[in-house]
């Protein structure tokens, strides 16, 4: 049971980086790839159907952290306090940009929220990189520093590459000028998830040591595992429904 829930936690965190890494990367590249407003609209419309299904992986990570690793949860979140604040504020601004940008007609309104999406995406990538470095250092040093910034840049570069590959897959030959297959997208997802996967492999013994007692884990298993096929099925359904080979010309985008 201990190994199962450590595995679930790792899967969710790696899944978040592999999936939402593309959304964050697209947000970072938004001003560069979308020089005109219609171009930016197409870039956002390309990622929009996946955002809700992707970002929810991190909500699940936080839930499992609390449920299965309660003694770590407080230590990590209060240990990384300033980074968690920047991560959450960045996430909030990015999401607000996506939800709000089309709700008014004005040009300045939409362009302003597009900048907010870009800013929030950079904030997310850099906060994550710094958080991973701080975690690797055992939360001993200050959470913000030069090595952390290096980690932030590495994660940002990986996300940007993943986002670029995603756009080349979703809108082949259009905003990026390149075409990528699903296989290439899978590979870039691996690149985006690599830093966190390495860290998790290093931290696995520490996680196993601090896992909740079996009474708690049994309850989680009974209540969650029956729904796992539905959760994965819904995720697969999203990717099948919005696959570019299926009528990419009709995207009633809301974001």
């Amino acid at each position: 049971m201990d190994i199962l829930w450590t595995g679930v936690f790792a899967l969710l965190l790696v899944g978040y980086f592999a999936l939402e890494g593309s959304g964050i990367g697209v947000g970072m590249l938004l001003p560069a790839l979308g020089r005109t407003q219609p171009d930016r609209d197409r870039v956002v419309a390309a990622m929009a159907p996946f955002v809700l299904a992707n970002e929810v992986w991190l909500v699940a990570v936080a839930g499992v952290l609390f449920g299965a690793f309660p003694s770590i949860e407080g230590e990590v979140l209060s240990g990384l306090y300033p980074l968690v604040v920047t991560l959450l504020v960045s996430w909030i601004l990015r999401d607000a940009g996506l939800w709000f940008r089309r709700r008014l007609d004005g040009h300045a309104w939409r362009a302003g929220w597009d900048w907010m999406i870009c800013l929030g995406s950079y904030g997310l990538a850099l906060s994550w990189g710094m958080a991973l470095v701080a975690m690797a250092g055992g939360l001993s040093g200050p959470p913000i520093g030069l090595p952390g910034l290096g980690g932030g840049l590495v994660v940002a570069a990986a996300f940007a590459f993943h986002g670029w590959t995603f756009l080349s897959w979703r809108l082949p030959g259009q905003v990026t000028g390149a075409s990528r297959t699903g296989g290439a997208l899978l590979a870039s997802a691996g690149v985006a998830a690599l830093p966190v996967a390495v860290l998790l492999a290093v931290l696995a013994p520490w996680l196993l040591e601090h896992i909740a007692p079996s009474a708690t884990l049994n309850v989680l298993s009974v209540m969650i595992l029956p729904f796992a096929p539905l959760m994965l099925g819904a995720q697969v359904w999203v990717w099948r429904t919005f696959d570019p080979r299926r009528a990419a010309d009709r995207i009633p985008s809301f974001f």
Binding site: V59, A60, T216
Partner: peptide, 25 residues
């Protein structure tokens, strides 16, 4: 946390995860 965390974890995985995915769809 061993008690209070369980309903929160079940909520995020067994409810909100699905809610968000289906809302996007």
């Amino acid at each position: 946390g061993d008690v209070f965390g369980a309903p929160l974890a079940i909520e995020t995985l067994g409810a909100f995860f699905l809610e968000s995915t289906f809302l996007g769809l």
